[in-house]
C-alpha cells in the first residue's frame, strides 16, 4: 500500500497497439515506406481513435509467440480443409438426391472473456463445418450452424472442435485456461 505504484507501462503499450495497427494499414495503403507516410498515418490514426474510441483491450497477458504461431498454423490448415469440404458439399448438392442435413448447435465457452469469444466466433466461421449465427456473451454461449451434421456423433465432434479451438486461442493470448476469480471480476466491471 505504501509502495509507490510503478508507472503503467503495460497499459500505455496496450493503448498504443491500435495506433500502430492503423499506421501500418496507412503505410501499406500507400505502398511505400516514407517518414511522411508514417507521420500522416499517425495523424490519421489519432484522429480515428479520437473520433471512434475503442474499449480498452481486455486481459493482461501478451501474445505467446509459439502458441500463437501454432494457432495460426492450425487455423490455416483448417481454412483450406473447410473450403475444400464445402466445395465438395456444394458440388454434391447439384446432384439429385436428398438435400444435405445440418444442425444448429449451442456451445458454452469455458472462458468468460468477451475478447476470447470474439476471436472464437471469428475463427469458427472459417474453420470446417460451422457458421456462427448467434453469440451471447452474457451466457458465454455460441450458436453455430453446422453444415452436414446429421447425427449426434457429428454434433459431439463439433463441440470437441470448438473446445480445441478455444484452448488454442486462450493459449495464444497467454491466459490460464480458466480465468482467476479476480480477472473475471475485473472484466465484468467493464
Amino acid at each position: 500500500m505504501s509502495r509507490p505504484t510503478p508507472p503503467d507501462t503495460a497499459g500505455l503499450l496496450r493503448r498504443a497497439v491500435p495506433v500502430v495497427w492503423l499506421v501500418l494499414v496507412w503505410v501499406l495503403l500507400w505502398g511505400t515506406f516514407s517518414w511522411a507516410n508514417v507521420l500522416g498515418g499517425l495523424a490519421v490514426a489519432l484522429l480515428v481513435l479520437a473520433a471512434f474510441p475503442l474499449p480498452p483491450a481486455p486481459g493482461r497477458g501478451w501474445l505467446h509467440p509459439l502458441a500463437a504461431l501454432r494457432a495460426v498454423g492450425r487455423f490455416s490448415a483448417d481454412l483450406v480443409v473447410s473450403s475444400l469440404q464445402v466445395a465438395w458439399q456444394a458440388l454434391q448438392a447439384v446432384l439429385p438426391g436428398p438435400p444435405i442435413r445440418s444442425s444448429v448447435v449451442a456451445v458454452r465457452l469455458a472462458s468468460s472473456s468477451e475478447f476470447v469469444m470474439a476471436m472464437v466466433v471469428e475463427t469458427l466461421s472459417l474453420v470446417p463445418g460451422s457458421v456462427v449465427i448467434e453469440a451471447r456473451p452474457e451466457e458465454r454461449t455460441v450458436y453455430a450452424h453446422v453444415l452436414g451434421a446429421g447425427d449426434a456423433e457429428a454434433v459431439a465432434a463439433f463441440r470437441a472442435q470448438v473446445r480445441r479451438l478455444e484452448a488454442d486461442i486462450v493459449a495464444a493470448l497467454g491466459r490460464p485456461a480458466a480465468p482467476a476469480a479476480g480477472a473475471v471480476a475485473e472484466e465484468e466491471v467493464t
Binding site: 481454412l79 473447410s82 473450403s83 464445402v86 447439384v94 444435405i100 472459417l126 457458421v131
Partner: peptide, 16 residues
Amino acid sequence: LSLPDVLSRMHAATKP
C-alpha cells in the same frame, strides 16, 4: 445456388 437454405449457403459464401 445448389445448397438448400440460407444458412447452408452462407458456408459457401465464407469458406471457399
